[in-house]
Design a protein around this nucleic acid. Structure first.
Lengths: 185, 185
DNA sequence: ATATGCAATGTTATAACGTTCCATTCTAGG
DNA sequence: CCTAGAATGGAACGTTATAACATTGCATAT
């Protein structure tokens, strides 16, 4: 029954062995949202990877660029299509998912669980504990950090001996712009 | 392009029209977790539905029972199989998903987004704003409520004019029992 | 009794998301 | 160079969810 895939397992193990440092250095800068030049971001990510001794390959860089270039959370299959369109590079699902795994492990991207889609991460340089606000109208997401929420969650967890390893905090609703534009519809 | 499914849309509209009251009556009872007799729970849910003037049908009741009987978050397809096994009732995916939609709308069940699985809801009688602690070893989940977290999220949202409609808060890790039992593995 | 309306469910097909398994290519260190 | 391990390619498959359309069954009006 416990039949498993060696290559994939190794891939996971490798990723685990190269996990970024996890000292919490939470972000309280609330004005940094929304203004990110894709190329600068990718350059920063590349520098971070070099520093960590992990490889920012062409594929991974392309995927990250596409995430930054996208106007909102992007599915793995959309990334496949975008890669084919932009770079004339046709890859299969496993390739994209591996690249996404790498980016997530390095804190360069996150998965929005409630959308099965992926976003680039605003603060790759720190251990981030993001939360996301997702507009159901314009399908954009905003990354946010709130150490007080993280602290409360940690407190609750500690209350019954739970050891937390990963948090998913997603708030769905309507952004200010869509609320103004759309009326009550 | 905007070709859509009338039946499904109507289903959604009907659900929206019968949404439960949403005055926040948060739960601070931390000892009520884990001790729930399925039949009592289903009976309570049935009473709530009657009170609200919505129908707790046989199918919906079966799905809810199966959720309560299950030892952890359960996928829609697992519910299909369980329904076939237990009730000799073979249904298709849409049927299960519709029942789950109903239960979620009534606050009787929740989806664990990070697992694509469903759990029965501990506090159907109030507007709940749950958070879940999910053990990656034993695959169980624990429902929790923390109004302070909800308040912080609301505060953050209000800070940039975001109107929140739904929250997903999931913490993955290892429960106390598995931590004791499993060592560091 | 027949017609109409409508909530709920049934059925088939397919879209969308993700993984297994195995082959091949690339790349850093001896 | 050479080779071990990291990275990628790709067919097939598994899993999750919805579209589109048909039917059941009950209530009320004619």
């Amino acid at each position: 029954m416990e039949r498993y895939n060696i290559a994939y397992r190794l891939h996971k193990v490798r990723l685990a062995m190269t996990e970024p440092p996890t000292q919490p250095r939470p972000c309280t800068d609330r004005d940094c949202r929304g203004q990110h030049a894709p190329h600068e971001r990718v350059a920063l990510a590349t520098a971070i990877c070099r520093e960590r001794g992990v490889q920012m390959t062409e594929l991974r860089k392309s995927i990250l660029e596409l995430l930054w270039a996208s106007c909102g959370p992007t599915s793995a299959y959309q990334l496949m299509e975008a890669l084919k369109r932009r770079d004339s590079r046709a890859v299969g699902p496993p390739t994209v998912y591996r690249a996404l795994d790498f980016l997530m492990t390095q804190g360069l991207a996150s998965k929005i669980e409630s959308l099965n889609a992926y976003v680039p991460c605003v603060h790759p340089e720190r251990d981030h504990d993001c939360l996301f606000f997702i507009c159901r109208d314009c399908r954009t997401s905003v990354e946010f950090e709130n150490p007080r929420i993280a602290a409360l969650l940690a407190e609750d967890a500690a209350g019954f001996g739970f050891v937390a390893t990963r948090r998913t905090v997603e708030v769905e609703g309507r952004c200010a712009r869509c609320t103004e534009a759309g009326g009550t519809a």
